[in-house]
Amino acid sequence: MWKSSAQTAYALLLPALVALAIFRLYPIAATIWGSLCTESFEKAGASVFAGVSNYADLFTDPVFWGSIWVTIKLNLVINPLQIALALGLALMANQGFPGIGFYRLLFFVPIGVSVPIASILWRTMFDPNAGLINSLLSILKIPSQPFLISQEQALWCIVAIATWKGISFWMIFLWAGLQDIPPQVLEAAEIDGANRFQRFLFVTLPLLRRPLLFVLVTDTATNFLLFVPMFLLTGGGPAGSTNVLMFEAYKSGFVYGEMGRALAIVVVLLLLVVAVVALQFRLLRRPEGER
């Protein structure tokens, strides 16, 4: 019935394209439009077009720049850390020895714990007065640490919590990737005289590029939007040391009622994530000539 196969393809794609427009493109457009508007107090809080004033305001605000720095600092540490640990776990899970099933189960456990529950659990453990971690430190004769209420330690405590929660999830993808690598290739490398480390570096890692790229991109996007531990544990403090962009956007919109500012922050965050992800794609692109 259809005039050409292209038309058939478009017709079949239509539902997905409509869904994409409604659930992806429209919210992005609405966010960009909202970031160009502000509340008018002469018109009882009605939203009015304000040009780029929200952005101009943002770029002269030291709190915003502080927030950008915290976001970048967090991501520079947490993404390599999570991926390295997830890869390590995946390599361990990929081993075959008696009892490995038990260890694999242990690796999976954090996936079943929701982020809010993990946050609350860790807050109890990090409690400076009566927490488990300080009790353990006292056995080792290390003085009590302030953890989440310290400007220097809070962000790294959040890194620890998010990493504990995150790595087992990312491990699954890398482990699946490892299982996809044909054992013959590794055997061949072994026969050619490659040692364990060389086999990992020159055979396993290049063959793991696709799952690694997927994990890198989704993990980065997830961590740029990390919000729950800040919301539940630190409120962006102490002294703004955990005030990531996502939290600053939330506070502007839902606590201060400045939706224009909040949406402008979200747009900046979106551009930042897109830029970082584009860079990652570029770095992990297949070399020319390789299929």
């Binding site: 302030p146 209420i149 310290s150 400007q151 409120g235 962006g236 403090g237 102490p238 002294a239 506070k251 606590v255 201060y256």
Partner: peptide, 14 residues
């Protein structure tokens, strides 16, 4: 909100 977070910071030693 700013008052609260500021005094929390002061309580925590800032």
């Amino acid at each position: 909100d700013l008052f609260f977070s500021t005094f929390e910071d002061i309580r925590n030693g800032v």
